[in-house]
Simulated scan of single mutants.
Amino acid sequence: MRKRHALAVVSAGICGLVTAAPAQAAEYSSALKIKAIQYDAPGRDSNRCSGGNTKDEYLVIKNYSRTATVNLKGYVVKDATGNRFAFTANHHLQPGDFVRLRGGRGTDSDAGNVVYRQNCNFIWNNDKDTIYFYKPSGARADVHSYTKSANDRDGNGYITYHG
């Protein structure tokens, strides 16, 4: 009798795991995902708007859809401490296309695949941080945590996600 009861509990647990997996995967279903981050801008950090290197710190967001064009307007990027950037203008990513969200000031360009945060302060920590990416609905599109020692083996300040 104990064996049957234990088997029923294990079976119920496995069914619970199987049904929980799609719900979790759905939470992160998004054509847009974080492809890479240059979290540590090359050179000595300088957040001066003129002559600084915050523009060399960037996040790469890619459209992994094979068919859908996605507008970035309304998407939000945050770090672990709550620094945030919201895409307020239309910026359309064709299937397979990407954009670099750069620090510093500059002119956004669909042709140049770049959007500037219009802020000369660094957003990503050089030792560790978490990148949160949200859809306009507020649902999470993607998230990645990194530490320099664990995720950046060559120490160049650049990490790739999602191939």
Results as ranks from 00 to 15, higher is better:
Ser149Ala: 15
Asn119Ala: 14
Gly51Glu: 06
Arg4Phe: 12
Gly104His: 10
Ala25Gly: 09
His144Ser: 10
Cys120Asn: 14
Ser50Phe: 07
Arg84Val: 00
Ala20Met: 12
Gly13Lys: 13
Gly104Val: 07
Arg48Val: 03
Leu7His: 11
Gln24Arg: 06
Ala111Cys: 07
Cys15Tyr: 13
Thr81Lys: 11
Phe98His: 05
His144Asn: 13
Ala36Glu: 02
Ser109Leu: 07
Asp79Gln: 05
Lys73Trp: 08
Ile61Ala: 06
Arg66Pro: 11
Gly103His: 03
Ile131Val: 14
Val76Ala: 06
Ala31Arg: 01
Asp127Glu: 12
Gly103Ser: 09
Ala12Leu: 15
Gly96Glu: 04
Tyr28His: 12
His92Asp: 06
His162Cys: 10
Ala8Trp: 14
Ala26Asn: 13
Ala6Ser: 11
Thr81Tyr: 03
Asp129Tyr: 08
Gln38Phe: 04
Asn83Asp: 03
Tyr134His: 05
Ala139Gln: 13
Arg153Tyr: 15
Thr81Met: 04
Tyr132Met: 09
His5Ala: 14
Gln38His: 05
Asp152Leu: 08
Gly103Met: 05
Lys35Val: 02
Pro22Glu: 08
Thr130Ile: 13
Asn83Pro: 02
Gly16Trp: 03
Arg153Lys: 15
Tyr28Gln: 08
Cys120Pro: 01
Ser11Tyr: 14
Val114Pro: 14
Arg48Ile: 02
Asp108Pro: 08
Thr19Tyr: 15
Thr88Pro: 01
Ser149Val: 14
Pro95Gln: 02
His91Ser: 02
Asn47Phe: 05
Gly104Phe: 08
Thr130Gln: 11
Ala26Arg: 09
Lys78Val: 02
Lys55Arg: 11
Gly96Asn: 05
Ser65Ile: 00
Pro95Lys: 00
Phe98Glu: 02
Gly157Gln: 04
Leu93Gln: 03
Asn126Phe: 12
Gly138Pro: 04
Asn156Cys: 12
Arg44Met: 07
Asn47Met: 04
Gln118Met: 14
Tyr161Leu: 14
His144Val: 06
Phe133Arg: 05
Phe98Met: 03
Val76Ile: 09
Met1Ile: 11
Ile37Glu: 03
Gln24Pro: 04
Lys128Ser: 14
Asn71Pro: 01
Ala41Ser: 09
Leu32Tyr: 07
His91Thr: 00
Ala141Met: 08
Ser29Leu: 10
Arg44Cys: 02
Ala89Trp: 01
Lys73Gly: 06
Val10Met: 12
Val114Lys: 04
Asp79Cys: 04
Phe133Gln: 10
Ala86Pro: 00
His92Ala: 08
Tyr58Leu: 05
Asn113Ala: 14
Arg102Asp: 04
Ile131Lys: 01
Leu93Arg: 00
Leu17Gln: 11
Ala36Cys: 10
Pro136Trp: 07
Leu72Lys: 00
Asp97Leu: 03
Ala111Phe: 06
Asp142Met: 10
Gln38Val: 05
Gly13Ala: 14
Glu57Gln: 15
Asp45His: 09
Gly52Gln: 01
Leu17Thr: 09
Lys128Pro: 05
Asn53Arg: 03
Lys135Pro: 05
Ala89Ile: 02
Thr81Pro: 02
